[in-house]
Design a protein around this nucleic acid. Structure first.
Length: 319
RNA sequence: GUAAAGUGGCCAGGACU
């Protein structure tokens, strides 16, 4: 059943919930790990209500099952309910508390996050990065810096969280200065800085960075693509998209969102079709882009059709 | 010292403001 559980997770990660469920049903005596994997499958695929029902029906639960639920509620922005579930947990560990800290941080309740953080007995690098991101999201870069300097050890994740904070606030000079001080840069560090420049349309800096970057990933390409789209250069965006060595769902959605903003409905519809032909599953965001494009064109018929397709073809429910 | 499930940093996630 270790194998079956692995497969359940595999199906979950590609959105094949029904397949995961059939597989789960075929397990003779599911244990808490396999039923928790199934729980995560629902939760990660936006099927929170089914997940909740599943959770209630689970014969046995452990701290992982509880944490999965807390984390999912938190990611849906439902911190209140996440907190309620958290309070009902029979016991907690560093991961479960981190999940709640992340929930608070993500909605800007940084004091609550900090209080919880301060109560933790073991604080790993993960929860420290969560706090950094929370400060950055809140625009509290001094606090972020202070927090960063108080850390015993700073890993590459903490560094890139800091860079992201500055580049989010369009303070690229500060972001760049921090970037140059990183002892060991990984791909994310490079992409973070790159995305900042691309967003601002600082193409000279982009070019310089691209000459230094050790390795290109899909995110590298997407950062460039996002730069073009964000600056309204859809022609360049399309050219780049067609020449990209690596594409993922984000690439497709980025271009789709560009068409949506410009009201280029035909192009958007074609792109959605093309992505399906390429075997990439649209998600709720993809369809949102289509609907936005429709509304800009006042095309109610197409909107209605896409709205139906979304649910019929992909079981994506409106939120 | 090795296997399955939960928490961390980059790229998409509308419009109005």
């Amino acid at each position: 059943e270790v194998c079956s559980t692995t497969l359940v997770s595999a199906f979950a990660s590609v959105g094949r919930v029904e397949d995961a469920k059939s597989l789960f049903d075929a397990i003779e005596s599911p244990n808490v790990v396999s039923s928790t994997a199934m729980l995560s499958c629902y939760l990660h695929n936006g099927r929170t209500d089914e997940g909740k029902l599943w959770f209630q029906s689970m014969g046995s639960r452990n701290v992982v099952s509880w944490t999965a639920l807390v984390g999912a509620l938190a990611q849906n922005g439902d911190v209140q309910e996440g907190r309620k579930v958290y309070d009902r947990m029979p016991k907690w560990d560093a991961v479960s508390t981190s999940a709640l800290v992340a929930a608070y941080a993500a909605v800007g309740k940084i004091e609550e996050a900090k209080d919880l953080f301060d109560c933790m007995e073991e604080r790993g690098p993960a929860v420290e990065a969560i706090m950094l991101k929370g400060y950055a999201l809140n625009g509290q870069m001094q606090e972020a810096e202070g927090f960063f300097h108080g850390m015993q050890q700073t890993d590459v994740v903490a560094w890139s969280a800091l860079i992201h904070g500055y580049s989010d606030r369009l303070q690229m000079d500060r972001a760049a200065r921090i970037f140059e001080r990183i002892p060991m840069r990984d791909g994310v560090c490079w992409n973070t800085l790159l995305a900042g420049y691309a967003t601002k349309g600082e193409w000279a800096e982009v070019k310089e960075l691209l000459e230094r970057i050790p390795e290109w990933s899909a995110s590298t390409w997407n950062a460039l693509l996002g730069g073009y789209v964000g600056n309204g250069q859809l022609r360049e965006a399309k050219l780049l998209f067609d020449s990209m060595a690596q594409r993922n769902l984000v690439s497709w959605t980025t271009l789709l969102s560009g068409y949506a903003q410009k009201g280029q409905l035909q192009e958007a519809i074609e792109l959605l079709r093309f992505m399906q032909l390429e075997g990439v599953q649209p998600n709720g965001v993809s369809y949102l882009c289509i609907l936005v494009a429709c509304s800009r064109k006042n095309n109610f018929v197409q909107a209605r059709q896409s709205f139906v397709d979304m649910q019929a073809d992909w079981s994506i429910l409106p939120t």
